[in-house]
Amino acid sequence: MSILVKPDTKVIIQGIMGRFGSRHAQLSLAYGTQIVAGVSPGRGGQRFANQVPIFDTVTEAVQQTGATTSAIFVPPPLAADAILEGVSAGLDLVVCITEGIPVKDMIKVKRAMTGKPTLLIGPNCPGIVTPGGSQDSPRGCRIGIGPGYIYRPGSIGVVSRSGTLGYEAVWQLTCRGLGQSTFVGIGGDPVHGISHLDAIKRFAADPETQGIIMIGEIGGTAEEEAAAWIRDNCRKPVVGFVAGSTAPPGRRMGHAGAIISGGQGTAAAKISAFREAGIGVAMTPAEIVDTLVRML
């Protein structure tokens, strides 16, 4: 029915008192997400929106509420610390929305997470949404900054590096009457948590997911690695789109990770890996859903 989060997943917001964190905590609550705690050091004992208890540490929040997942909305200099606090509290999943974290901080975070059970989504990502449909969570679990109204429950898994391009694909699906099992935005940074491949393996194993959309962009080789696995292991239809075929080499295109360097990471290389793997290739975003419908 979904991957990584379910409509009843209990979620903590780290940085709930900040402008950005509080706004999206409100939107997630309105969406029906089980936001069970906020963390804001020094404000333990207060409540957010007269409703959500605030704790000084993530560990306390986990012990008191049974939360398994957190969303991070703290400024970039504090984000590595916030991620590792979530890891040390034994969370299953940490979703880091923060954009602009130094690469070195993320190198340290990844090193420190080696061998730990916690999964990381992001940073610099739109988050994750599993649309609902149950009585407890009519609209589902929204973690991050995605626009809630575009999602419908269904059987298409979407994984995207880009936020707005991911929304574009989700919105097209919804407009065509196709719902989503889960939308995962893995983020645009060069050092990040789960990859396209990690998400696609889970979609492939999820009995409710019947088709997969993978949205990539220039830079790195993560799309090629996912394609190689799909070629050998995935029997579900997969459609891919890669942004940046007109991007000049050597320039960082907004996302820190979106750069063609050393001849690696071109859109052409990724598209040809998709073709070789039997992935349906959309040449424009408008073709994503048409291509998927033909393959279903």
Binding site: S160, R161, S162, G163, T164, L165, G166, E168, G188, I215, E217, I218, F241, A243, G244, S245, T246, A247, R251, M253, G254, H255, A258, A267, M283, T284, P285, A286
Partner: peptide, 25 residues
């Protein structure tokens, strides 16, 4: 003029796809 890096790149790509030439990201 676009919001989001991925959508901004894709917008350039689509302009090119229809025979135009993007002036900027």
């Amino acid at each position: 003029l676009v919001n989001g890096a991925g959508l901004a790149m894709a917008t350039m790509d689509v302009i090119r796809h229809y025979g135009g030439h993007p002036a900027n990201f």
